[in-house]
């Protein structure tokens, strides 16, 4: 179980896609860990990056900024970025920031990987 500034992030390679599953709250203390991991994954230029947020119960603006940064990096590398499984509280933050239409958001990883 993650605590403090630590954060468990599972990474799974599936053909030309990478499935990333952060586990736990993403706030100012933890977003640098996620940012670093996503940057590392995107440096390999996968065709598709799927971020499964189903195990993230809380995200603040630093977490959102981390994903916006990943979106920009993915576009520069011609990589398709998908967010899946957003919990209501996290989805609410994206809606308030009006980013829910900027990201490609799907309900489950299967549809994101098969799209």
């Amino acid at each position: 179980m993650s605590s403090g500034n630590e954060m468990e992030i599972q990474v799974e390679n599936r053909d030309d896609a990478v499935l990333v599953t952060p586990i736990g709250e993403v706030d100012l203390a933890r977003s640098p860990v996620l940012r670093s991991r996503l940057k590392e994954i995107l440096s390999a230029s996968p065709a598709r990056l799927v971020v499964d947020l189903s195990q993230v119960p809380y995200m603040d603006s630093s977490g959102v900024a981390t994903l916006v940064e990943a979106l920009q990096q993915s576009r520069a590398r011609d990589c398709s970025l998908f967010l899946v499984g957003l919990q209501d509280r996290v989805r609410s933050v994206f809606e308030i920031a009006r980013l829910d239409t900027v990201f490609t958001i799907t309900s489950d990883t299967t549809s994101a990987l098969d799209t």
Binding site: V68, Q72, A97, V102
Partner: peptide
């Protein structure tokens, strides 16, 4: 301006909105 999609600067917007 939220139309300018970039990392950062969302905190005040979120605070005022909720």
């Amino acid at each position: 301006d939220l139309a300018d999609v970039r990392p950062g600067g969302l905190g005040v917007h979120l605070m005022r909105n909720v």
